[in-house]
């Protein structure tokens, strides 16, 4: 849904195709679509934060956060946060490179971003294995796994989109004029990063 070419500027082949649609907005359709999709995703996170809010704040007999006997690895997750934030910059570099026609920069930027995203995801999985509690261990465990898991799923989706962009970058697609296929996964990736900062702050720090 996010990474396909705009529907209106397709090649028409031998048939008489549709008349090109009138572009009635300065924003291009795929970019606007991505932003609206992100708005929807923000609300999905919003519903998980609402659950967090009820379990932690509204519930009159809420235990501490984390409750006694539970421990969350604030430092490891902090390092992980730094990795993910850095990957946003490499993503930006990749996009700027192709805008200037620098294919090597595009490829390097995408590969670096992919590698850092993968590192983040693997660290997160290791954390799950060693954190010492499971989703079924009290509502704290449920909310912890719910929010970090939802975010992990988004990292996975983002990585999938980036993989597609990388494959195409190495196959010679994209140009300074046509780079929606990099720009739109990039927007999504920045969203995933920003969302992680919020998740990290609410789950680990606060």
């Amino acid at each position: 849904m996010t990474a396909h070419a705009p529907a209106v500027d397709v090649h028409h082949g031998e048939h008489h195709g549709p008349p090109p649609a009138h572009q009635s907005s300065r924003v291009s359709a795929p970019v606007l679509g991505m932003f609206l999709f992100i708005a929807s995703e923000v609300m999905l996170f919003g519903s998980f934060f609402t659950a967090y809010f009820f379990v932690r704040v509204v519930n009159p007999d809420a235990p501490g956060w984390p409750p006694e006997g539970f421990h969350v690895p604030v430092f490891v997750a902090g390092v992980n946060t730094a990795i993910l934030v850095t990957s946003s910059f490499t993503m930006h570099w990749a996009l700027q490179s192709i805008k200037r026609g620098n294919r090597a920069g595009l490829q390097a930027g995408l590969v670096l971003t992919l590698a850092m995203g993968l590192t983040f995801l693997l660290t997160q999985m290791l954390e799950y294995a060693r954190v010492g509690f499971a989703p079924r261990d009290t509502a704290f465990g449920s909310v912890f796994y719910g929010l970090t898991g939802l975010h992990g799923a988004h990292v996975f989706v983002g990585l999938t989109l980036l993989t597609v962009a990388t494959v195409r970058a190495f196959r010679g697609h994209f140009s300074p004029e046509h780079h929606h296929g990099v720009e739109i996964p990039g927007i999504y990736w920045h969203f995933v990063d920003v969302m992680w900062i919020v998740v990290y702050a609410t789950i680990y720090l606060l």
Binding site: M43, A51, G141, G146
Partner: peptide
């Protein structure tokens, strides 16, 4: 676009409570 993710969320929680044994509503 803005509201539907909330029902997705609510049904995820109910499903997790059932399938994964989470405690959102316990």
């Amino acid at each position: 676009v803005v509201a539907t993710p909330f029902i997705a969320g609510s049904q995820f929680f109910a499903m997790f409570d059932r399938v994964l044994g989470t405690d959102f509503f316990t």
